[in-house]
Design a protein around this nucleic acid. Sequence first.
DNA 1: TATTGTTATACTCTATAACTATA
DNA 2: TATAGTTATAGAGTATAACAATA
Lengths: 161, 161
Amino acid sequence: MITDMADNSHESAGSASAAPPELRASTGYLLTRLGAESRRRWARMLAAHGMTPHHYGALMTLENVKVTHQQHLAELIGVDPRNAVSVVDFLERQALIERTRDPADRRRHTIRLTAEGRTTVETLRRAGEGIERDILDGLTGDEQLALHTLLQRLFEVTVDR
Amino acid sequence: MITDMADNSHESAGSASAAPPELRASTGYLLTRLGAESRRRWARMLAAHGMTPHHYGALMTLENVKVTHQQHLAELIGVDPRNAVSVVDFLERQALIERTRDPADRRRHTIRLTAEGRTTVETLRRAGEGIERDILDGLTGDEQLALHTLLQRLFEVTVDR
DNA sequence: TATTGTTATACTCTATAACTATA
DNA sequence: TATAGTTATAGAGTATAACAATA
């Protein structure tokens, strides 16, 4: 359960008294708030590894797609291509990814994980499992599965594709 | 459905090709991404009304709790009390809320909606319904309800209380 | 001493325009 | 003329420290 609500965060996730249920009538509001809370916890953990959520998202995505180019990667992680430049720059400097010119289209930068990148993404995934458990702990196993399935469906029909 | 993915947003929600399913293994990742997308759409709509998500969150929350003080409001909307000052300042300048000293504890600022504030929150809620429909359109009615229920449960056990 | 609210500041995230090089 | 990537910049969002008034 949320064991460390009195931690160093200055966001007020640990409210003293709950708002009435009617307040949370909008699914969009709940998504926004819960997304922010999830991002906050991930960001705190990743910062200890010198990373941001976008860095991790890029590594995780690359682990899946194996090879892609920069613009496509930006789309997959939900970041504007212009803002993705610094993300990719950072990961390349850390030698977690490698960026090479695509000979077929010399405008493109082919991107793939390095061996070190694969190790790092695995380490971060492990570290994230605790956060995941902590956030979902208040739900039953069935509820956790149902939520995941619905979020995945929603992701497919809104963000992705 | 998502009719305007080729709009003025420079976030890349409208991806050309989908990532493999394994990519979306983490519920926390899905929450983060979907929350960001929801916030993005709300922010775009609210900006047309000269507002931010926090402004709307504060108005909506006040409509529910009727009367509270600044620190408590900050907790309810998930913003650090120090960062909530400018939010409350803004809403007071727009005459959407009124802020008065609590006679019982003169450190506290009692906050409540004005009549104009109530009108505004209703207007914004209406404007938000389209966004809500748009985001959830790909799900069936049953799925929408199930998702809402689960998010509300999750909100209660993590963010709230 | 602790709490409510405030001011100030820095840092991250997001949005946007203008540019280079390739196609 | 369009696309991949880059540079630069401004604004919104978040985190943090130090402070005044009041309890």
